[in-house]
Amino acid sequence: MCVLCGGFVVQEHWTEGRGSTGAASVTVGGGASRERQRDRRDRTAMANRILACYGLKLEDWNGSKYIVRDVKGSSEIVHDLGALWPAVEKLIKKTADPLDPALIGRLQQQQQQQQSGRP
């Protein structure tokens, strides 16, 4: 579905695949499921680095949905990254824009802190 409209899910969001070849492949039992779970965990961790700048946190909910929360306890359930940003907008009351100089500044700060924290 459109990232602007959010809405019902009729198919996988484009961020959840990294390119199919269209060819059949052989997977060992549970392999695809493990990979999917790993992907979800990595995606959540990466999203949290960005969401930290807005005081938000994303959690994986039973491997099927995500929950995004703010520090005051408000939360939104989202199905995929397409729905994440409209939910973030609802919680922070403005659009999360990657071109926003304030966000860029905070990310740079985050990075400097990480670097100075290292031995």
């Binding site: 990232v3 602007l4 969001h13 484009w14 961020t15 990294r18 992907d39 990595d42 995606r43 990466m46 999203a47 960005i50 990254l81 397409g82 994440l84 940003w85 409209p86 907008e89 659009t95 999360a96 824009d97 990657p98 071109l99």
Partner: peptide
């Protein structure tokens, strides 16, 4: 590129500036 990071960045960009 890290696909998760790129997916997050692009989906965020398209939401804000689509």
């Amino acid at each position: 590129l890290d696909w998760h990071a790129f997916g997050l960045w692009l989906s965020m960009l398209l939401h804000a500036r689509g």
